[in-house]
Structure formats: structure tokens, C-alpha cells
Write a protein that binds this DNA or RNA. Structure first.
Lengths: 156, 156
DNA sequence: AATATACCGTTGCCGATGCAACGAAGTCAA
DNA sequence: TTGACTTCGTTGCATCGGCAACGGTATATT
């Protein structure tokens, strides 16, 4: 048999990710017009307190420039505050404002509800899926010297 | 507890998809400098014979414009041929050239090897993952009236 | 202390992407 | 036949995202 795209794991993963992302977007879209990077930065700040751009970049799979721009927008919207680090003046310290925390409280609830919904739909396979995702995520980023593109779809 | 991005399924799915895509890209990147849409169009044509832009658009989760542009590039590279449909002259019929088939033969082998590798790494959880992905993919695209963005990462 | 080197965050730039409008072509109904 | 309405593929446009270069700062070496 010839190669079947529909059976190809990277492709399926990608489509699934898009699909799920779209669904979730429909939920929080009503709450606030956030972009993906904004949402991630917000979420990371919410449970990490004060962090630098670098931290988020490393932690949340987001380019430095994205973090920077997202932070700028969020600051403009009044959801976070930027300040200089006390000793190392290269660092920019990001921190949620009360408004930001309030927003994340609402979004967090939405996210958790959505997550619960997904888990319910997946049934008992959910835990195995988690396990598999963990493996896939943890994998050899090192074994990827360069790279060009793939067989997947956008996640946003 | 506050909301944890790392435990959020849409986010994890997205990161996993990126990761896997990058790994795969490293493999076929050496073979041909294809973009994601190009790869998908090629793959779909390979097992479908003659199809229209519309078909691919519907089938492969790719915007019409993407399919159109990818097809144009692939035509330029000599991997496919575009011709008019006999009766319905609105349709553009896409078809692989011998070169295109030869390329997909090589890429198909690479893809299958990669797939096998992933399956091996995932072990017995693979089948459950497949099952879960099928459910996620099949889900309510209808329940997504508009949408804005999500909590995921790029797949390319 | 002075120089070289490494790191941080911002910005410019270019290609990729999604949406919407358009021309072309087909269908249906009067 | 004529004219509204739908469908197909292309193209324009605005945005997004990744890469790389830049200014600014800290650290290491001499």
C-alpha cells in the first residue's frame, strides 16, 4: 500500500492539536481577546509570580520576541507590570497586576472546565494519552540539529 | 491550587505536535526542501490519484489558498501537473508527475520509518494514543462557531 | 582597570498563514 | 435565454511567528 497521510502520527497529532485549540479558543474568546502567546505568558505568570522574559521563553516554548511582544501588549492592557531586576539590570521582571490575576482566575476556571470536558470525552484513555504526551514532549530535542518543516498543522 | 499550564491538555498536545513535527522535519529536510502544505499536498495526491484543490482543502485541513500556492510551487518544481477538468471547467485537476511519485516513494519510506520509531518509543500506549487522537480529531468542529486563538504552540 | 566574551530583551525583517474579495464557471428557476 | 445564486481556484491584504542583529549589561581574563 502507498503511504497514508491519515495514519501518520505527526499529522494526526497536529490536526488534533488544532482542533482542540480551536475549541478552547471559542471558550475564552468571549472572555478576553487574547492571542496564544499572551495566554501563555499570563498563565505562566499566574503560577510563577515574578519571572523574567528569559524564564518564560525557556519554560513555555515561546520565542523571546513573542514573549517580549506579548508582555508589551499585556502591559498596555493593564494585566501585567514590567520592572527592572534589582541587581541584574539586564533582566526585566514581569508580574501580574490585580487585574491580570482576576482575568487569570476567570480563564483558569474556563480552562479547567474545558480540560475536564476533554477528559470525560476521552474516558479511561485519558491517562494513557497523558503518559504518551509526556514521552513525546520530553523527547530528543537534541536529536534535532536543524530542521525545516514537517507534516503537521498549525496549533493556533 | 492555581492553574498549571503544564498540565493543560491543549498546551501539551500543541507542544507534543511541535516536537514531533520538528523531529520529522529533520528527517525529510535532507531529502527535499518542502514546506508543510507542500508535503501534505504531495502525500494526499500520492494515494488519491487525481484530485481537485477543493478535495485537498477539505481532506487535509489546509486552507484553499495554501493548497493553491503549494500546488503552484510543486508544479514549478516539476512534482505535479495541473490540468482542467473535462466537464467542469472550474475544477483544477492535480496529479503527480513521475518525479513527484518518485519523491513520495522516498519520503513515504522515511515517514514510515519515523512512524515505526515513534510507535516503538511509545510502546503499548501507542494504540490508545491513536484511539484518543481519533476522538479528538473527529470532535465537534461544529461546536466551534468562531474562535480566536488558543493555548497551544505552532506545529511546524 | 581594561578588554573580551556571554547574556538579556527589543526590534527589524521576511516568509508563512488565514481571511475575504474577486473573476470564472456551473446550476437552477422562471 | 436570461438572470439570481452557488461553487471553484487565485490573489491581495493584514497579521503572525521565527530568526538574527542590535544596544545595553554582566562576567571572565589579563
Amino acid at each position: 500500500m502507498t503511504f497514508q497521510l491519515d495514519d501518520f502520527l505527526p499529522y494526526r497529532l497536529s490536526v488534533a492539536a488544532s482542533q482542540v485549540s480551536r475549541r478552547f479558543a471559542a471558550r475564552y474568546g468571549a472572555e478576553a481577546g487574547l492571542t496564544i502567546p499572551e495566554w501563555r505568558v499570563l498563565a505562566h505568570l499566574n503560577h510563577s509570580g515574578q519571572v523574567s522574559v528569559r524564564d518564560i521563553h525557556a519554560r513555555v516554548n515561546l520565542d523571546k520576541s513573542m514573549v517580549s511582544r506579548a508582555a508589551a501588549r499585556l502591559e498596555g492592557a493593564g494585566y501585567l507590570r514590567k520592572s527592572g531586576h534589582e541587581t541584574d539590570r539586564r533582566l526585566v521582571v514581569l508580574e501580574l497586576t490585580p487585574e491580570g490575576r482576576a482575568l487569570m482566575e476567570r480563564l483558569g476556571r474556563i480552562a479547567e472546565a474545558f480540560q475536564a470536558e476533554l477528559m470525560a470525552e476521552l474516558g479511561e484513555g485519558a491517562s494513557v494519552l497523558e503518559e504518551a504526551l509526556t514521552r513525546l514532549i520530553a523527547m530528543p530535542a537534541a536529536a534535532v540539529p536543524d530542521a525545516e518543516d514537517d507534516g503537521a498543522a498549525p496549533a493556533a
